[in-house]
Write a protein that binds this DNA or RNA. Structure first.
Lengths: 377, 377
DNA sequence: GAAAATAGCACAAACGATTGTTCGGATTTT
DNA sequence: AAAATCCGAACAATCGTTTGTGCTATTTTC
C-alpha cells in the first residue's frame, strides 16, 4: 500500500510536470487525465464523478479507483465546458442601477446569498441609470449564457427586456416594474408608501409639501408621485408645480433641488424625498442653509436605510421590505429557471411601512411629533 | 433588391421556426447557422466575424454577405464556447466580506465599472466574514474559469490563496493583506490612519480612549490596533486592556461593546471605532444611553462613508482613498492577466486622511474642536 | 450446450467556438 | 503546355464535458 501510494505520487508529479512542460502557466486536471491514469474511458470517469455509477453499472472497484484518483489529482470540473454541453451556466445576471446605493447593496447581498445557497453565482452589472449601459450589459449577459436575470431596470426603455421575455429567458423585475409586461416582478407598493408619507405630513399640519422626484417616467417615480398627488387631493391641498421638482435619484439632485426650494417665495414647510440618496443631498443643503430639521423644515424620506435613525435628524421614512424582496426575487427566478417556463408569472406587490422618527414637526401643536425613536431597531 | 430582401426575410423566419420546432424553449443562432445560410464554412464565418478577413484573404463579397447575415439573424457569440476554446472567460471574481457594507459597496461599484470598461465582467461573492465560505466561493470561481481574482480576504486563513498564487492565477488583494505573501495588493496604511485618529483624540485632551476592534488577527485590525497602541505609547498614556474591546466589524459588535464600555467604572471619554458599521452600533448605543456626541463621549471612526457628515454628530473619521483603491486594483489585476505573470507583483500602500468634523470634544478647553464642517464635501 | 441475459465498460457524437492545414482552381510564369 | 503562384475557402482537430449507443465477456436460462 505504501509503495503503491508512493508510486502514485511519483507518477502524479511526473504527469504534472509533463503538463507544465507543454504550458508552464497552468493546465488543469481534466477527465481525460483521470481516465488515462486509471485506464478507464472518459465517459466512465464522468459517470462516476456524477454519481451515476449504479445507473451505468460501474463496478465498485472502478468507482473507488476513479474517486480516489480524482481526489488525489485535485480534479476540478471545468464549468465552462459543462455549461456549454448542458446549456446551463448556474449563473444569474444581476442588473442594478448602482450597487453603491445602500438599498441596492443590501438587496444584492441577500440575492447573492440566496442564489449561492441554491447553487447559482451572480454576475453583477451596474447601469448607473444609463439605459444604454443597461442594454449593453444585458446583451453581454446573454452571450455569457446566464440562466436568468434579476433586473432593477432603469425604466426608460423596455424593448430589450421584452426581447428577453420573447425568447423565454427566465427573468424577474425587481423594485421597478413595467405594468404592461407579463413577467415575474417584485415591487413595493410605491404609491401607497408615498401616500402614507405625505399623509403623515398633512396630518402634522403641513400644507406646503415639496416632492423631490427621482428619474422621471420610471415606474417607481410615477407611483411615488401619484401617491403624493393623491394624498394632496384627498386632503384638498392645491397642487403647486413649483414644489414638484427633481429628476434623478442621486444625491446631487437632492442637494440642488433643496437649495432651490429653500429659496423660493413661499418655501415648503416639508419635503418628501423619494430616495435615500436624494435625502442625503437634502440634508446637506438644509444644513448648509443653517436650518434645522424638523424645526425649520420637516423631511420624510423613501427607502429606510440603515443610517436613517442616526442621521442629524432621525429620519421618518418609508421602509421597503428589503429582505423579502431579495428572497422572493431569487425564489421566483430559480423556480422559473428550473421549471423552464411552466411556472406562472407572478407579480408581487409588497407593503411598505412608514417608520416614524423625529424629522417631522407638528405645525399645529408646534411640537415635534412624538414617535418611538429607533422604533425599527 | 426589394424582392431579394423579402425572400431573405421569409427564409430567415422559416429557419427560426425550424429551430423552434426542435426545441420550443430557445436555441440560439450559431456560426453554423450563418455558415449554412451563406453557404460558407464555419471557419470562414468565424474569421470574418473576428475581423480576420484580410489576413485570410476572404473576398469582400463573402465578407459582406456574412456580416449582413450575422446582423440579420442577430448572431450572438456563445462566450461559454469561446471561453472553453480560448481558455479565457473575460470574467473576474470579486470576493468581498459583505457587499452591503457601504465601503465595500462603493469599491465594488468602481471595480465593476473599470472592469467593464476593460472588457471584463464581475462575478460577485460575499463571504460574510466566514473563512469557509470564502474558501468555497474561491473554489467555485476557479471552476468557472475566471481570469483573475480581486479578493478582500477574511484574513484568518491563507493557504487557499497561496494555492491560487502557486498556480499562477492573477490575483489582487484589496483592503486586507497578508504581509508574507508575494502578490499584488492594494491597501491603505491602516496603522498610520489609526495613529492619526488616536493622536487627534490625545491632542484634544483625551486619555481614556477606547478602541472597538474588528475581527481579530486580520491585517486590518492588527494594523489599526498597532496604530492605536503606538499613539498611546508615544504620548505616555498607559494601556488599559478593558478599553480594547470588540472582535467583529459589524454593527452589533459596536453596539454591544459601546454599551459595556459606557458602564465600566471609569468609562472612556473617547472611542475609536475601527469600521463604519461598528460606528453605527456605537452611535445607537450612545443615543440609547441618553448621551450626546461629543459632549459626553467623543468618537473617531474609520472608513469615511458618505453618511459620515450627516450623522447625529458629523463624524471625524479616517478616510480611505476608495476611488484609487478600486481603480488600482483593477488595473493591477488586468495587467497581471494580460501579461500572464511577466508583470511584477506590486504592493501598494495608500495614505489615509483624517477628516475633521464635529464628533470630538476638546477636553482642555471644554469646547468642541473647531473644524471645517463637511470639509470633505 | 446453445441462446439469452447481464455486467462493465468504451466509442463517438455532440455543445459552439477557434485555428493550423489542406485543397481546388484560376492566373501567371517558365 | 507544364509548372508555379496565389486566391478563396473548406477540413478537421481542439477545448472539457455529457450521454446515447455499442461491444465483449461472463453468467444465467431452458
Amino acid at each position: 500500500m505504501t509503495t503503491k501510494s508512493k508510486y502514485n505520487i511519483l507518477h502524479l508529479s511526473t504527469k504534472v510536470c509533463a503538463k507544465n512542460k507543454k504550458n508552464p502557466k497552468e493546465l488543469a486536471i481534466t477527465l481525460k487525465d483521470i481516465a488515462e491514469k486509471t485506464n478507464c474511458s472518459v465517459s466512465t470517469v464522468s459517470r462516476v464523478l456524477n454519481n451515476k455509477s449504479k445507473e451505468f453499472r460501474i463496478s465498485e472497484e472502478t468507482e473507488r479507483l476513479i474517486l480516489e484518483t480524482a481526489r488525489k489529482l485535485n480534479y476540478r470540473p471545468n464549468e465552462l465546458a459543462r455549461g456549454l454541453r448542458l446549456k446551463k451556466s448556474h449563473t444569474i445576471g444581476l442588473v442594478v442601477p448602482d450597487i453603491s446605493n445602500p438599498f441596492f447593496a443590501y438587496v444584492s447581498h441577500l440575492i447573492q446569498r440566496y442564489a449561492y445557497n441554491l447553487g447559482y453565482s451572480l454576475v453583477l452589472c451596474n447601469t448607473d441609470e444609463d439605459i444604454d449601459l443597461e442594454i449593453q450589459q444585458i446583451e453581454l449577459l446573454r452571450r455569457k449564457g446566464v440562466d436568468g436575470y434579476i433586473i432593477l431596470p432603469v425604466g426608460t426603455k423596455q424593448e430589450h427586456i421584452n426581447e428577453l421575455l420573447s425568447h423565454n429567458k427566465p427573468l424577474v423585475l425587481l423594485d421597478r416594474i413595467f405594468h404592461d409586461m407579463n413577467t415575474n416582478a417584485v415591487v413595493v407598493d410605491n404609491k401607497k408608501g408615498a401616500y402614507q408619507a405625505v399623509k403623515h405630513l398633512i396630518d402634522n399640519g403641513h400644507k406646503r409639501i415639496a416632492i423631490i422626484q427621482g428619474l422621471r417616467n420610471t415606474s417607481t417615480n410615477n407611483a411615488r408621485l401619484a401617491g403624493y398627488l393623491d394624498a394632496l387631493k384627498d386632503n384638498s391641498i392645491p397642487i403647486d408645480e413649483r414644489l414638484m421638482v427633481g429628476n434623478d435619484f442621486r444625491k446631487e439632485n437632492g442637494y440642488i433641488e433643496t437649495k432651490l426650494l429653500l429659496k423660493i417665495d413661499a418655501p415648503p414647510t416639508a419635503i418628501f424625498t423619494t430616495s435615500d440618496l436624494i435625502t442625503l443631498g437634502t440634508l446637506q443643503a438644509i444644513a448648509e442653509e443653517g436650518k434645522l430639521i424638523p424645526r425649520d423644515v420637516s423631511v420624510v424620506a423613501f427607502d429606510d436605510i440603515d443610517y436613517a435613525p442616526y442621521l442629524m435628524a432621525p429620519l421618518t421614512s418609508v421602509r421597503q421590505p428589503r429582505d423579502l424582496m431579495g428572497q422572493i426575487a431569487v425564489k421566483l427566478l430559480i423556480d422559473d429557471i428550473e421549471s423552464r417556463g411552466t411556472s406562472k408569472k407572478e407579480k408581487l406587490v409588497l407593503d411598505p411601512k412608514l417608520i416614524l422618527r423625529k424629522s417631522v414637526m407638528n405645525l399645529d401643536s408646534h411640537k415635534e411629533e412624538f414617535s418611538a425613536i429607533y422604533s425599527g431597531y
